[in-house]
């Protein structure tokens, strides 16, 4: 995932001040690592797909706010976000459908393994990862849409006022 933005080389100054950029450069790796930890250990410790996915979305939002939208769009474009969103939703239903082969919808069909291991609890970690990716991509996509289209609206309004 996105860890080390090479914004020092970018020519046009976008985003916030160098102080914010430096802090974000140090913090962003930790934020993504924490989000993935929350998702992957969701069946053993507090957390899960929803919380971890929102943390990852916050990481992308920080990138967008600090470095401007070009870098964030390079890391995850709006098209990629919607494709990940749809794919994860479909995979979620597909894994649930596979349960039909073993008896019932949403059946926890794989062997459960020993408790307190990372690979245990059957299908729950898989669901966690799918939901985490889905929440990440959809929340980031909506933030992108709102902020960029919002800017667009404000610029249009400014121009209309100038014309008047």
């Amino acid at each position: 995932m996105a860890t080390k933005p090479d914004l020092a080389s970018s020519q046009q100054p976008t985003g916030m001040t160098p102080i914010v950029k430096t802090v974000v450069r140090f913090a962003i790796g930790i934020i993504f690592m924490f989000g993935w930890y929350i998702i992957i250990y969701g069946h053993l410790t507090p957390g899960g797909g929803f919380a971890g996915g929102t943390i990852l979305a916050c990481g992308y939002v920080i990138l967008t706010l600090a470095f401007g939208k070009e870098l964030a769009l390079r890391k995850m474009s709006d098209m990629a976000a919607s494709i990940i969103d749809n794919t994860c939703a479909l995979l979620f239903v597909t894994v649930a459908m596979i349960g039909f082969a073993f008896g019932a919808f949403f059946l926890n069909f794989p062997p459960h393994g020993t408790p307190f291991n990372l690979v245990s609890a059957g299908v729950i970690p898989l669901y966690n990862i799918l939901i985490g990716l889905k929440v990440t991509s959809s929340l980031f996509a909506i933030f992108l849409a709102l902020s960029i289209f919002g800017r667009f609206v404000s610029k249009l309004v400014d121009e209309a006022e100038e014309e008047e």
Binding site: G42, G48, A89, F116, S120, A121, Y127, I131
Partner: peptide, 25 residues
């Protein structure tokens, strides 16, 4: 015992009541 997940909330969200999670998605 039924799900193997130590976090009971995760087992409720994603196993016992997974329909709700599908609706949320």
């Amino acid at each position: 015992q039924k799900t193997g997940a130590a976090n009971i909330v995760a087992s409720v969200v994603l196993d016992f009541r997974a329909y709700d999670t599908l609706g949320e998605a």
